[in-house]
């Protein structure tokens, strides 16, 4: 059995991507998976086994909210929307992530060690 840590890039990465994707437009679970896959040029494959627990965590922390509706394909779907709190959280996370990425990049940069 795989653990979440193995599936994720790093803790919180999945949540961050979900929030970012939802910021562009509200989506339901299946569309979310497709969207992330597409945006990342198939580099990132989200597993449903991680997606749903992650969505529940975001719901619980009120970073997103969910509503039942009808999709474009005329299917009953539960659409997730970013809340104001979620937007703020995303901003913080992204800036933190960028700092971290910058640090990692510098360390990995050739010729400076």
């Amino acid at each position: 059995m795989k653990t979440r840590e193995q599936r994720d890039l790093f803790p919180g990465a999945l949540e961050m991507m979900i929030l970012k994707t939802l910021k562009r437009q509200p989506l339901h679970g299946y569309a979310l998976v497709q969207q992330i896959k597409r945006t990342s040029n198939d580099l990132l494959q989200i597993e449903e086994g991680s997606l749903y627990p992650a969505l529940q965590r975001l719901l619980k922390e009120e970073l997103v909210k969910a509503e039942w509706g009808i999709s474009s394909t005329n299917r009953r779907v539960r659409t997730y929307k970013l809340t104001a709190k979620g937007a703020k959280h995303l901003e913080n996370e992204v800036s933190r992530f960028e700092k971290m990425l910058e640090g990692i990049t510098r360390v990995l940069a050739p010729g400076e060690s």
Binding site: Y52, W68, R78
Partner: peptide
Amino acid sequence: KQLFSRRRLYGDLSEEIQEHLEEKIE
């Protein structure tokens, strides 16, 4: 509030996952 609305939450979850599978199959 969560404690009392939980049954509904769980129902939503099952249905959602079911729909997800359906969509994928289709």
